[in-house]
Amino acid sequence: MISRRQFVAGGAAAAIGVASSSANSQAAWPTREIRSICPFPPGNGADVIVRFYAKLLQERIGKTIIVENRPGAFGNIATEAVARAKPDGYTIGIMAASSQLAAAAALFRKLPFDPVNDLDQITTLMKLPFVLIVAGDSPFKSVADLTAHLREQGDKGSYGSAANTGLVASELYKAAAGLKTVEVKYKDPLGMLNDLWAGNIGFTHLDPVTILAHLKSGRVRALATSAKDPFQALPNIPSAAQAGIANSDLIAWWSVAVPKGTPADIKSKLEAAFNDAVSSQEHAKFVADIGCDPFPGNHASAHELLVKDIQAWGEYVKLANIEIM
């Protein structure tokens, strides 16, 4: 018969063994493939970005990164999948955090996840502004030119919006300049650009990825970015501050997140791997080619930025009178 002392001692040994096994498993991470949950459909431009970062991570940790596409619900399906995954380091989210997390917190009455408390930030990856553009044959060569014209037009002037970030950027400009320009909503950027070229709207804000080819061909002219500071990838475009839009410092940014409770040593390894990737020449060229800048950071700076942007988006929703979903 096993005595109580033997039973307790055996149980303690077993517990120590389990803890030791868990610690060894963490130390050996990764031992198998890792899933990166992607909120975009395959082949989408943003999906290409996710796969690029997955490739850089794979090269640095020596394990396969499987990109699992779960589009829908404005990215909430994929984000929830990351948040609800087992926190063992084998599920990550490479995401446009400024929209999937920060903006989502303000745009939805009820999210199926908490952007701050259900996820741990690993680090930031890249950033991009929105760009204030007019038609390439427009007489306006600066924000000051455009502002003078729009003031004369009053509420007869109009601008286009096809996404909430572009809408907010335009409303920040309106507020700074004291304009009464009216918003015209579009379902997609192409229809909006066609109306810009036809002279039906005066200006819009779009991301660099969408407009770079049109900038190079001269079909659109960039007057300013929505960011306070200049962007290395857009050296010939004034920042919002340089153009006199003093209230605007709006950027989109990408980061990596994991389920809350992922072991600290695994998070540290992910942070080191991604920061090494972000500092590479391959990464610098990739982001420059799409009008973005590298955005190195760490878990603390990413968390701080997320909290700050959630608060900012609460104000943006009011400014732009965006309907909460």
Rank of each mutant, 00 (worst) to 15 (best):
G11K: 12
W313S: 06
G191E: 03
A135N: 15
S226R: 04
D309Y: 13
V168T: 13
G43V: 10
F231L: 02
P87W: 12
N236W: 11
Q6C: 10
S22D: 08
L319T: 07
T210P: 12
I65Y: 07
P30G: 06
M95F: 02
G72H: 03
S217R: 15
T79M: 08
R4Q: 14
Y316C: 03
S226G: 01
I2M: 07
Y316W: 03
K180D: 10
V182G: 07
L125Q: 11
I266W: 11
C38M: 02
Q121T: 10
D309Q: 15
I16Q: 01
E80I: 04
P230Y: 09
T123D: 08
K156H: 14
L119H: 03
D120N: 13
N24L: 15
V18W: 13
E304P: 00
L128R: 09
R221Q: 08
Q242D: 14
K318F: 09
R32G: 13
K260C: 02
D249G: 02
R5Q: 04
H214V: 00
G10V: 07
P71A: 00
W254G: 03
V50S: 01
Q58H: 09
G75L: 08
T181A: 08
E33Q: 15
V8Y: 04
L193W: 00
A104V: 11
L172G: 02
D118Q: 10
L215K: 10
E304N: 02
F231W: 05
W253H: 10
F52D: 04
S248W: 05
D145C: 09
A12T: 13
F231H: 05
L215A: 06
E183D: 10
P41V: 01
S22I: 04
S138N: 12
A257W: 09
T204M: 08
K228F: 03
A246D: 02
L190W: 08
G10S: 11
N164K: 10
N298W: 15
A257P: 12
L167A: 04
A97N: 01
I322W: 06
A288K: 13
R60M: 00
A81R: 08
Q58A: 09
L125V: 07
T64N: 08
A272R: 14
R221P: 01
D293R: 06
G11I: 13
D88P: 14
T165E: 07
T124G: 15
S138K: 12
V134G: 12
Y53I: 02
Q281K: 15
A198Y: 06
L56T: 13
M1W: 07
A257D: 07
A81V: 01
V48L: 13
V184K: 15
Q232W: 07
A46F: 03
T31C: 06
N321R: 14
D265F: 06
V116R: 07
L319S: 06
I16V: 15
L223I: 01
M95D: 03
L223Q: 05
N164H: 11
P71F: 11
F140V: 09
A224L: 10
M1I: 11
K187M: 00
A23Y: 06
D137F: 11
F130T: 13
D47K: 09
S217T: 14
I237T: 13
P238V: 12
